[in-house]
Design a protein around this nucleic acid. Structure first.
Lengths: 234, 234
DNA sequence: GATGAATGTTGACGCCGTAAACTTGATAGT
DNA sequence: ACTATCAAGTTTACGGCGTCAACATTCATC
């Protein structure tokens, strides 16, 4: 269950993004055009970033007329939204892959697990810059981010579920392990998220996009370490 | 001297972005079309973000044919670049405005000054989201970001001069005031920058774009405080 | 005052997103 | 089995975009 989400609407909801169609195109009717278009759009985003998610190009890739897409999407925005969701999902997978490598409940293990989440985030941004950028493009739905919770609030269910359960859990473990004062826990996920997200943005989009891999590694360790230090300070 | 930069090329270099033309359009020849187009493009970015920086729209606003722009820019990309530079400049001004309000060399004053820079950054992002986004869009020139300097390196002259001298100086003051161990100084500007930049991005683009002003304020203080704690930890 | 370089204009091209009207083919009811 | 229906494709068309080539106007300068 790491599969599809079948965005909104009329979806038959089936494919696990990767190879999608139940059958290649067989004549006039395609069989799974919606997913085929999403896959093509994902490819485009991977190659050229959000601006490359061009409806006509996706249709061309699938071998179908441009307007065929309108039987499955309201328009380009909805197609793009599907790409965005896919990017978010891949990001989460990358974080989880990092976090899962660190076992144990000891203070150091938990700390190391927080670092690993951050490294996963950065790794995804660098390996799939186009998808990463797409995942954080402003687009119509997706609001409803915060819900009060003591002082600062936490990310709302919607986003949490898809993206940051693991970060939140791991920060909770940090408290449980005695590495973070409980009163400083609320809102900590935002500091961690902002820091890692900002680094990723600067590395991908920003003025840090020409670093050597060693520099990137060095900087990543430093930045993640700094915010973790701040969060775990007495 | 807070004025223009007159991007590349054939510029007559004059106007301090704001009201530009030496004279309104007087017939066939405009007089200062380059700057007028830049101003229009800046307006567009302010209203609709980077994607709204449309060459034809800028020309329309100035009251000139679309292709007239090609006498002053290589194409849309160069026009956009001018907008980007303007956005960066405005961001710096906003940071400086924040930093200048805090006087004194004492440890607390310096710390407070670092906070003020971060607040200025966030304030600009929220007040001018379109320009802020444009300022960090990937675009052709602008690379050359880092220069080795001991372990991590600092932002290269080019960027530094325009954007982060003040941050760098203030972090140096932090060391001088005994608030930061000197050995942890190199690279600290990246942690600070990444954190604040990430927060700004999440607030502007990302899933945190529907917060109340109080929530924003609260979160900002928290996030900036956390990274500062991390940087000044023994 | 003629003339050439700057500057602006028109027209055209191919790409984009999207709407309307038409075509194809699978399917359900008789 | 025949046919009506309707979802899923197609073609055509529109306006907006970036850009190019060719033409027009004005400014400066000899």
């Amino acid at each position: 269950m790491e599969a599809n989400t079948s965005a909104a609407g009329s979806g038959t909801g089936e494919g696990g993004r990767g190879r999608s169609a139940r059958q290649g195109k067989r004549g006039y009717h395609h069989g799974d055009l919606r997913n085929a278009l999403i896959d093509a759009a994902i490819e485009l985003a991977g190659e050229g970033g959000p601006d490359a998610v061009v409806l006509r190009a996706a249709a061309r890739r699938v071998g179908v007329s441009a307007t065929a897409a309108y039987r499955h999407f309201e328009g380009q925005a909805e197609l793009f939204h599907a790409v965005k969701e896919y990017g978010q999902q891949r990001l989460v997978e990358c974080m989880e892959a990092g976090g899962r490598e660190i076992h144990g409940d000891g203070p150091e293990a938990v700390k190391e697990r927080v670092m690993a989440l951050g490294r996963g985030y950065i790794r995804f941004a660098l390996e799939e810059p186009g998808l990463f950028r797409a995942a954080f493009c402003p687009s119509f739905p997706d609001p409803i981010p915060i819900t009060e919770d003591g002082g600062l609030g936490r990310i709302a269910e919607q986003w949490r579920a898809r993206s940051f359960d693991m970060l939140i859990e791991t920060l909770d473990e940090l408290v449980a392990a005695g590495m973070m004062p409980p009163e400083r826990r609320p809102g900590a996920e935002l500091s961690a998220w902002a820091t890692v997200h900002g680094l990723a943005m600067l590395l991908v989009d920003g003025p840090l996009d020409t670093l050597t891999p060693e520099q990137v590694h060095c900087i990543t360790e430093r930045v993640i370490g700094d915010i973790l230090t701040g969060l775990t300070a007495p």
